[in-house]
Design a protein around this nucleic acid. Sequence first.
DNA 1: ATGGATACAATACAATCGTATTGCTTGCCG
DNA 2: CGGCAAGCAATACGATTGTATTGTATCCAT
Lengths: 188, 188
Amino acid sequence: MDRRGDIIRGVWRTILTRGIAGVSVRAVAEAAGVSVGLVQHYHRSKDALIRASAAAMIEGSAAAYRLAGFAPSEAVRHLVTHAIPTSPAARDGVVIWHAYLAASVADEELAALLRAAKSGQERELATHLAAVVPEDEVTHVARSLIALADGLAARVITGEISGADAVQTAEAATDAFAGIARGRSQAP
Amino acid sequence: MDRRGDIIRGVWRTILTRGIAGVSVRAVAEAAGVSVGLVQHYHRSKDALIRASAAAMIEGSAAAYRLAGFAPSEAVRHLVTHAIPTSPAARDGVVIWHAYLAASVADEELAALLRAAKSGQERELATHLAAVVPEDEVTHVARSLIALADGLAARVITGEISGADAVQTAEAATDAFAGIARGRSQAP
DNA sequence: ATGGATACAATACAATCGTATTGCTTGCCG
DNA sequence: CGGCAAGCAATACGATTGTATTGTATCCAT
């Protein structure tokens, strides 16, 4: 009986069905199958509840990444394409992330959480990129690739392009940047 | 006395100060300096109000772009970097855009609006890119550049990186893609 | 066993929500 | 001049909101 987790998952489900504006303590309680009182027991306010759910999501995907134990080359690929949803289930994560982003304009504490998560992701990518890109370009390339993936992900969730298309674009870009870095040695 | 416009701007101001979840008919009316009744007079429901404000924003930036009348080379630069806020005022536009994106999960009609706007932007960039990129890569490069800019913009609004840094990254990427397309003729 | 913490539910409350209704003013068309 | 449409404000409605309060179980340490 992981009520704490149920509540967090309730927040996510509510975001997905009613949008961030539709998240209320009652809606979350119902989605989680618990009472309003219990939600309050674990989270002192609605804002705190949302922040906790964001923190849980960030921690969850960091843990999944560590668990996977990627080889260096796979790590780069994973870090770039991971943000892009190729299945309905993965789509959810991106939708939820954008909900937090929108909510962060009215919650500086939440904004700080998201900031830290993204720059952590960028640093992680940069360390793996160091093997294949000159040192003075690493930060720059890492930032570009993460941004590209995020931008593509945003268009996938609106249904504008497919996840597969987005991944293909992202992988081509990854090769392109790596190619440039290796002195354009990959011309056909 | 442009009350219609006042109301739309009221929506935007409310999004910026209270987030998309804080947008209520009353809050918008107050921000616009009009009565609740007048907001209802022009917009049959809150959802319709939000959609109208999104449509106004999309139309507004399209009109501004047409008015500017860029030369082809400037157009590419503008279309890529425009989404990236370099001033507090420009930041607002990106924040508002993300608010709409978050709201679109619970409003399919709004989602369609955003979809159409983004793919229009991509098509416009593609036509200007045709002069400098091989035909079979145009769509792909346009998509990558727009996605890159959007991803960078998202990180600017969280305060993680500066607008200037983001623009620099975006311009470097633009050159890189153009460079690749020209057969890597730009090596140092 | 007993006492205090923790887990959980129920309910009460004022505030705010979206929307419907009504009415007053203004301007234009006949 | 009269009438009708549009612009605009006020208010009333029940529903929903966030949160405080209060209660009862359940537990583990003393």
